[in-house]
Nucleic acid binder design. Sequence first.
DNA 1: TAATATACTACCAATTTAGTAGGAATAGCC
DNA 2: GGCTATTCCTACTAAATTGGTAGTATATTA
Lengths: 144, 144
Amino acid sequence: MKLSTRTRYGVRAMLDLAENAKKGPLQLKIIAQRQDISAKYLEQLMAILKSAGLVRSIRGAKGGYVLAKDPNQIRLNQVFHCLEGPVTTAECVENEDYCRRTADCAVRHVWIQVRQAIEDVLQSTTLQDLTDKAKEQGMPDYQI
Amino acid sequence: MKLSTRTRYGVRAMLDLAENAKKGPLQLKIIAQRQDISAKYLEQLMAILKSAGLVRSIRGAKGGYVLAKDPNQIRLNQVFHCLEGPVTTAECVENEDYCRRTADCAVRHVWIQVRQAIEDVLQSTTLQDLTDKAKEQGMPDYQI
DNA sequence: TAATATACTACCAATTTAGTAGGAATAGCC
DNA sequence: GGCTATTCCTACTAAATTGGTAGTATATTA
C-alpha cells in the first residue's frame, strides 16, 4: 500500500502555493525547481488539480498558478482524492453489488474501518494547518 | 490507494483457515473454490503466508494448510504486512535519510499520521475477532 | 512582434499485478 | 510397490499503472 508520486508531489506543490498565496501567480517552473519535481510531469498534475477546482491558472507572461480557495478552505482529502483517486481498500467497499456477501461481511467491515481512518486524518488537515506548522518550525519558504 | 488482491485474497484465506481451525488440515483447492480464487494464484499467496510463519503446511495426500497459531494470536497487520508490504505512504516515512527535510517536514508528519491510523485498525483486529463477528451474524462457514 | 507561460496531445520504458503452466517432491492408502 | 492426492518450485506472460518525455498550440504581457 503506497502513495503515488502524483499525490506526494501534488500535496507539496499545493503547499508551495499556499505559502505564496499572497504573492500573486506562482510559476510552475519555480515550484518544480523548489520541489525537485520534473516540470513536465508537474504540468500534468496541475492540470488535474485545476480541473478539480483546487487551483486557478493564469496564462501568458507573468502567469502561473494560484490556489482557487483560501488555504484554510482546502483540506488534504480533496487534494488526495483528485490525485490518488478514492481510497478503495476493496472493490466491495465502493460497490455494494460487487459481492453477494457485502451486507454482513466481516472482512469488508475492516476495510471500511481502514478507509475511514485514512479519510479522518486527511479530512482534518487543511493546507493552512501545514503552512502554520512549517512556519512554527522556522522553515524557509522553499523547504516545504 | 488500493489494496492488492494479494492482501484481500490472503485475508480471506486466513479467515477460512481460522473458521476451520479445529478440523485438521484444509486443502488449498477447497479454500480456492469457496473463496473464488484461482488455485494456482492462491498457491503463491500461501507460500508467502507460510514463509511469514502464519500458516503451516502438510504435504501429500490428506495434507493441506493450518494456521500456525491460534486465531486470537494472529492480527491482521501481520497478514497485511507480509502480503501487501509495509504501509509506505511516502519514501521519507520509512527512510529518514531520504530527504533533507524529514526532521520537521509538515507533509511527512501527515503521511506518518495516515500510516499510523491504518496500522491501528489492523493491529487491533485478530482473526478470532472476525470469525466471531461472522458467526454472530449467522453466516455459513463458506461465506467468509 | 518577441518573450514568457500555460494547455493539450501523444508517446514511451520500466515496474507491478494478477495470474497461468508444468512438473517435482512428498505422504497416505490399497 | 504403485496409485493418488497434495504441496512445492520455477518460469512465463498479458494487461495495467507509473512516472515520466516531447512537441506543439494558445494566450498574455511588454
